[in-house]
């Protein structure tokens, strides 16, 4: 039972990292300037690394004696978990699967997510589950940099030219509705808190808003909760496997080889 929760919880963390990595990697070779092409690819690489550690751990859990989950596909691996589940089994939040859009949208998505992930990993470092705690501790160093990099870009775009300011406002319009889900616990998140190894995401909200407001202030954007956004309806469901239409296409690309050549080794 606890193992089911731990497995689901770990998969949720892994899916978040992988899907955002996959999105960011679309920029490789197409960035606005070489130096930033390289920068966003670094973030992508960090996230793939996190996803791999987490999937490997989840595979270990699933492969351990008397598994009550999955099964029927033989030995689970990081790749079977990433490549052979369909949309409804993916547990990432809606935010990370949203399209790259322009540079402003990519930046804002990264800023929202990294700020959340930073707060989350800070707590997860203290998890009673040693493996999750260790992964969180290692990843936190990377995420600290992602927060710094994306914050600076939010400020640059917000306080840059009228065009960049406008584009950032558009991005906010596109993405704000997906931020609520970060702090609304999915079933397994609530269970993980009860079981003692999970982080209470609703408790991260205040600190997240504070950071967002601070950066928005520098970026000459209105406060996160102000500007009529207070009443905006928040989309949820991704963490429970009810995604936007985006994810199907992401998986179609991501999983193409494993689906076209079942069982092959690469």
């Amino acid at each position: 039972m606890t193992k089911d929760i731990l497995y689901n919880y770990t998969m949720h963390l892994a899916d978040n990292a992988l899907i955002l990595a996959q999105r960011n990697s679309e920029w490789c070779g197409h960035g606005p300037v070489l130096e930033q092409d390289i920068a966003i690819t670094n973030i992508s690489l960090d996230l793939i690394g996190q996803a791999r550690s987490l999937y490997q751990y989840a595979a270990e859990l699933i492969n351990a004696p008397s598994p009550s989950i999955g099964g029927g596909r033989g030995e689970a691996t990081e790749d079977s978990l990433a490549y052979l589940r369909d949309v409804r089994q993916y547990k990432n939040c809606l935010l990370v699967e949203q399209p790259n859009g322009d540079w402003a949208q990519t930046i804002l998505r990264q800023f929202f997510f990294s700020t959340y992930q930073y707060l989350l990993y800070q707590q997860l470092q203290k998890s009673t589950d040693d493996t999750l705690a260790a992964i969180a501790e290692k990843s936190l160093k990377e995420v600290t940099y992602h927060v710094r990099w994306s914050s600076e870009w939010v400020v640059r775009l917000g306080d840059g030219t009228p065009e960049s300011h406008g584009r950032l406002e558009n991005a906010l319009e596109e993405l704000w509705m997906y931020t609520g889900e970060l702090f609304a616990p999915a079933t397994y998140e609530a269970e993980a808190v009860t079981a003692g190894f999970g982080v209470e995401v609703s408790a991260l909200k205040a600190a997240w808003e504070q950071k967002v407001n601070e950066i928005f202030g520098e970026a000459t954007l209105p406060d996160a909760a102000a500007g009529g956004r207070e009443g905006i309806y928040m989309q949820t469901g991704g963490k429970e496997g009810v995604h936007s239409e985006q994810l199907g296409y992401i998986l179609a690309e991501l999983q193409y080889m494993q689906r076209a050549y079942p069982g092959a080794e690469w």
Partner: peptide, 20 residues
């Protein structure tokens, strides 16, 4: 060398480009 809009960005770009 590299291009950057300001010093802070230059340091970050240097980290991303030259310390991979």
């Amino acid at each position: 060398s590299l291009h950057a809009a300001d010093a802070q960005m230059a340091i970050e770009n240097a980290r991303d480009v030259y310390t991979r």
